[in-house]
Simulated assay, not measured.
Amino acid sequence: MPVRKYTYYDFTLSLCPECLKRVDAKIVFENGNVYMLKRCREHGNSKVLIADDIEYYKNIRNYNKPSETPYVFNTKTDYGCPYDCGLCPDHEQHSCLTVVEVTDRCNLTCPTCYAGSSPTYGRHRTLDEVKVMLDTIVRNEKEPDVVQISGGEPTIHPQFWEIMDYAKSLPIRHLMLNTNGIKIAKDIAFAERLKTYSPNFEIYLQFDSFENSVLQELRGADLNHIRAQAIANLNAVNLSTTLVVTLQKG
């Protein structure tokens, strides 16, 4: 009998990559990889690589634990996942890491930016808006595990320090700042003030490559000197830092 070129493993729900409508999906094994096969009535079939190690994929699927839900749900369950997200009562996990986007704007115009941030795009959230966002997280979690202040580029927000002060005043177990490091590199005093938010504070530093050609393609600028100086300044003040890499196919 004819045999398909893949081995069927599981069935799930996903989204069409074009219209984002909910669609059925098969999880299959093919040539040592794990794929999701999706079909949208409007946009047809799509195939997505979700793992390149079948045994590893099966192993992580075996891990399970009781669901930890937030103390407060923000939306009702009307249409199902993902349309009621906010979090709704059907959600099986609390917010392990919450990203708070305080601005749409950025001091770079990265070609790879999924948010489309730039010096002119969108707006800064008001301080009151950011406080409401942070208060909602605390209401939901009581003591949030990790909250990341992000953007855009959060350090260019005109009320950046007020935002940081307010976030640090809340019962957040670990606070992070997601940044491209430009302001840290250009001003050691900026890094010194960030250090005052320790302990339980960390810099999540954009760091892609030492090669100018790669930086130009990913970031639209040669940031080698900025990266090196940012790390030097962070080391000088002994501030915990995680280097974050953006990967692009090709």
Rank of each mutant, 00 (worst) to 15 (best):
V72N: 13
L97S: 14
E143H: 11
S117P: 03
L37F: 10
F29C: 02
N33M: 14
N62C: 02
L37E: 11
D10K: 14
Y56R: 07
D128R: 09
R123F: 11
N64H: 12
T112Q: 08
K38C: 09
E42K: 12
R61A: 08
E141D: 13
P144T: 07
C40S: 03
L13S: 13
E18P: 01
K58Y: 03
G122F: 06
C96R: 13
P17H: 03
D52I: 02
E92C: 12
C96G: 15
V23P: 06
G32C: 06
P119H: 03
T120C: 00
Q93L: 09
P111W: 09
R41S: 14
D53E: 02
C81L: 10
T112W: 09
T103F: 01
E92A: 14
A51L: 02
S95M: 12
P111G: 06
G116F: 02
D90Q: 08
E101I: 08
N62W: 04
T126L: 03
C113N: 03
A51H: 10
D52Y: 07
I27P: 12
V100G: 10
E101L: 06
E42P: 05
I149Y: 04
D24I: 07
E68K: 15
L20W: 15
P66M: 08
C110A: 03
T12P: 06
V23W: 11
N107H: 09
R139A: 15
V147C: 10
Y71W: 14
S14W: 15
F11K: 13
T75K: 12
